[in-house]
Amino acid sequence: MSAAIDILSMILMSVGGVFCVIGAIGVLRMPGFYTRMHAASVIDTLGASLIIVGLLLQSGFTLASGKLLILWLLIFFCSPTASHSLANAAHRRGVIPWQSDQGAKSSSKN
């Protein structure tokens, strides 16, 4: 039973780690500031959630799992706030969104 939980939590954490790497690749690959934000939110949501759920399975019903739940709530309530404030600051400062017509032109050439 505990071996099954171990394997399940390892799978969840590994998948979460893979999503973190995908998000980081996206932050590196995406053109323009706003599109990079979308990639970063993959790390904040799916990557972090899967890893924390895996750790919750590992810790069972202890005080540590309560703290992990608080950590999860912290990520879910505060990371959109931070993202929004960054996007809002960039918008007010006049950061121009990367236009899709550049992409349309380059993809129509292909």
């Binding site: 959109p80 706030t81 993202s83 929004h84 996007a87 809002n88």
Partner: peptide, 15 residues
């Protein structure tokens, strides 16, 4: 609503 939009990857509430 705005936080839900930002939390969903692929959409961000800017202002």
């Amino acid at each position: 609503y705005a936080n839900s939009i930002t939390l969903t990857p692929g959409t961000i509430s800017v202002a």
